[in-house]
Design a protein around this nucleic acid. Structure first.
Lengths: 202, 202
DNA sequence: ACCTTCCTGTCACAGTGTGACAGAAGTCAT
DNA sequence: ATGACTTCTGTCACACTGTGACAGGAAGGT
C-alpha cells in the first residue's frame, strides 16, 4: 500500500473522528462542515471529496455492514434457505463488530450515541438501507431461482431480515455498552427465527 | 369552514399538483422550488410555509396513511392479536386509497411514478416511516401490556407489518394501474400472514 | 530529474431552508 | 360599513450544503 493511500485513509479517519467529537459536543445540526474541515486543517471542498455529504459521515458504518452482509451471503451454501442465510450474515456482522479494535469500538459507540440523539439520522440510515435491501433481494432471488422483479417473497424475506437487524440495533433501554448492544441484536435475531413458520422462505 | 381555510387548502393542492407535474416533466432534482412557486404564483418563501421541504411534497401521502393506520388501530378490539390488528389497518389504508376521488387517484399514481424514478425519495419515504413505526410500537406495546422501551417483540411486530406494506407498495413489474398496485399490496399482506407462526405476536 | 497521475485548495455558484419585518387580506365585533 | 384584530403573504437578508472548473503541488514510476 503506497504512501498516498495510507495518507488518504488517515485523513478519512481524522475527519470522521473530528466530526463525531464535534457532533457530541455541540450537536449534529449546529456543527458545520466548515468547522469539521477546520478541525483537521482541510478545506471544506476536500471534506466533500472524502464524504459525499454530512450525513454520509454517519452512514459510514452502514456501508461497511452492507459489505459484510453481501460477502457472507455469497459464501453461504447455495441450498441453504435464504432467511437462514441472512440470519447467518447478521451474526457475521455482529462478530465483525465484536472483533474490531478498541478504537473502532469507540467510534461505533460514539456513532450510536449521535444516532440516538438525532432521530432524523436514524431515518437517513434506514433510507440507505433500502439500497442494501435491493441488492440483497437480487441475491435471495437468485438463490430461489426466480427474478427479483417478479417475486414478492424474495423482497419480503430481505425486508424481514433487515427489520430484525434494525430492531436489535435500536436496542431499547441500553446503558450504551457494547456487550449490551450486541446482546440485544443477538436476542432480536433469535426472536425473529422463532416467529416465522418453518420453511416459509423455501 | 371559513374562506381562509378553503383558500389555504386550495393553494396547498395547487402547489402539490404543479410540483408533481413539473417533476414528471423535467425530473425531481432539476425542478427548483422557485419554479414550483412560480407555477402557482406564490413566493418561494410561501412554498416553505405549506411544505417544510421539497421532499415533504412527496411524503405527503405518507402522512395521510399514518393517520389512517393509527385511527384503525385505535378502533380495533383491544384483545385482538397486534399483528392481526396491524394487517387490518393496512387493509383499511388500501380501502381508503381505492375509495378516493379520481383526482386523488391521479395524484397517487403520479406520485408513484415519481417515486419509481427517484430511488432517493423511496429512501426518504422509508425514513419518515421510522417515526410512524415508533408511534405504532407504542400502541402495540400498550395492547400487549408492556412498555415499548422494554419489549423488542413489539418493535418487531410493527417492523414486520411496515415491511409488508413497503414490499407491496414497491410492486414489481407493475403496469402502473391502480388496481394492480392495490392488488399487489393485498397479495403481500396475505403472504406475510401465511409466513408467520400462529400466535407469534401474543 | 522527468513526466504522469492524483490530490488539494481556491473561487464561483446554484439551491435549500430560515428569521425578521411590513403590508395585504380575512375575520369578527359593533 | 368601519373599526380593530388576527393570520397569511412577499420581500429582503442570510447561513449552509453540495458541485463544477481550474491551477498548483505532492506522490508514483521511469
Amino acid at each position: 500500500m503506497g504512501l498516498r493511500e495510507r495518507k488518504k485513509e488517515k485523513t478519512r479517519l481524522a475527519i470522521l473522528d473530528a466530526a463525531l467529537e464535534l457532533f457530541l459536543e455541540q450537536g449534529y445540526e449546529s456543527t458545520t462542515v466548515e468547522q469539521i474541515a477546520g478541525a483537521v486543517d482541510v478545506s471544506p471542498r476536500t471534506f466533500f471529496r472524502y464524504f459525499t455529504s454530512k450525513d454520509h459521515l454517519v452512514l459510514w458504518f452502514h456501508d461497511q455492514s452492507e459489505e459484510i452482509l453481501l460477502e457472507t451471503m455469497a459464501a453461504r451454501p447455495p441450498d441453504e434457505p435464504p432467511f437462514t442465510a441472512l440470519m447467518h450474515a447478521l451474526r457475521a456482522m455482529l462478530a465483525d463488530i465484536e472483533d474490531a479494535t478498541p478504537q473502532e469500538h469507540e467510534r461505533f459507540l460514539k456513532l450510536r450515541r449521535i444516532l440516538d440523539e438525532n432521530p432524523r439520522l436514524i431515518g437517513q440510515s434506514v433510507a440507505r438501507g433500502t439500497e442494501t435491501e435491493r441488492r440483497l433481494a437480487e441475491v435471495v432471488a437468485a438463490r430461489r431461482g426466480v427474478r427479483a422483479d417478479e417475486d414478492q417473497l424474495s423482497h419480503l424475506i430481505v425486508a424481514f431480515a433487515m427489520s430484525t437487524m434494525r430492531v436489535g440495533f435500536e436496542c431499547p433501554r441500553s446503558d450504551g455498552s457494547l456487550p449490551e448492544i450486541t446482546g440485544r441484536m443477538a436476542e432480536s435475531i433469535e426472536l425473529a427465527e422463532r416467529s416465522l413458520r418453518p420453511g416459509w422462505d423455501a
